[in-house]
Simulated scan of single mutants.
Amino acid sequence: MLQAGGLDIQELTMSYGGDPVIEGLDLQLLAGKITVFVGSNGCGKSTLLRAVARLLRPQRGSVFLDGKDLLQLPTKEVARKLAILPQGPTAPEGLTVLQLARQGRYPHQSWLKQWSREDERIVREALHKTGMSTYAERTVDSLSGGQRQRAWIAMTLAQDTDWLLLDEPTTYLDLAHQIEILDLLFELNEREGRTVVMVLHDLNLACRYAHHIVAVHDKSVWAEGPPEVVLTREMVETVFGLSCEIDTDPIFGTPLVIPHGKGRRLKQRPKKERQYV
């Protein structure tokens, strides 16, 4: 049964010419939520996201948005509904932040509808929301990693879609910039009701920001649901091959994964008395 106001994946099988990467996968994504795909390297989570964005054609199965098969919709219509930010996007040398953001309005242009004041307003709002207004005339290649990612997110916001799809948006960013980007996406969801679907590697950050987590393993969905339901020792050991403990994040109250590993353990040292001279 197709889900109204959401995105439905039915019997999806994806391959790159060899054995399937995804096989017979069924999944429903709710509108208005933050969903995070997690899984080990090569498990197919990015492939799944690209199938949802119609960047890859399924070998079998279908992806439906609001009850309509994405493959049957015109490309521009899909781009007015779904905005995709792939991993590690690159911009032509010398392209400014403003010029990049304006690219997001392409799906709304036609021979009959050229650039308008409304287009310019939406672009300027996208720059404002991402904190990039003061960098509008800077070239994208002159920005820091976090600023560059914000510029790309501004472009996706300029598309003015309800769905934002992001493949590892925090890759290559330091921890402070990771939090900055995830906070931005969280605010877009909270304040504007934007649906966010993204791939993340960090399980603890996924738990902090996601309403719904989808663990991809063995070519399909191994587990899905709220973080406190999905994040178990069994899931981490099965999906990631990692022995761990699950605790509670002392700040957010979300699940906290503590890997066992083989790191150096500090021995408790006897307390020294303070010396006075």
Rank of each mutant, 00 (worst) to 15 (best):
T35C: 08
N41R: 09
L12T: 12
Q10D: 05
G42N: 07
S15I: 00
L30M: 12
K33Q: 15
G39Q: 01
G18I: 00
F37T: 03
G17R: 02
N41V: 07
L12H: 14
V38W: 00
T35L: 03
D19M: 02
K33G: 05
Q10C: 12
V21A: 13
V38S: 01
L27M: 05
V21M: 06
L29M: 06
L12D: 11
G18E: 11
S15H: 13
C43W: 02
I22K: 08
V38Y: 01
C43E: 08
G18W: 00
F37Y: 07
L29V: 10
P20W: 07
I34F: 05
V36R: 02
G17H: 03
P20C: 07
L29P: 14
L27H: 06
N41H: 06
G17A: 03
G17L: 00
I22H: 11
L29R: 10
V21I: 13
M14F: 09
Y16D: 06
A31K: 13
V36Q: 04
S15N: 14
K33P: 10
L30F: 07
T13W: 09
E11K: 15
I34T: 15
S15Q: 05
V38I: 13
F37C: 02
Q10K: 15
G24R: 14
I34V: 15
I22W: 06
G39D: 03
V36D: 07
P20G: 08
D26V: 02
I22C: 08
D19C: 00
G42S: 08
F37V: 02
V21T: 14
Q28I: 03
D19E: 13
I34M: 15
L30R: 15
V36C: 11
M14A: 15
V38K: 00
L30N: 14
P20A: 11
P20M: 06
C43Q: 06
F37R: 02
V38D: 02
S40Y: 00
L25G: 11
D26C: 11
L12V: 12
Q10I: 11
L27Y: 03
E23F: 03
G42P: 04
D19G: 03
V38Q: 01
Y16A: 05
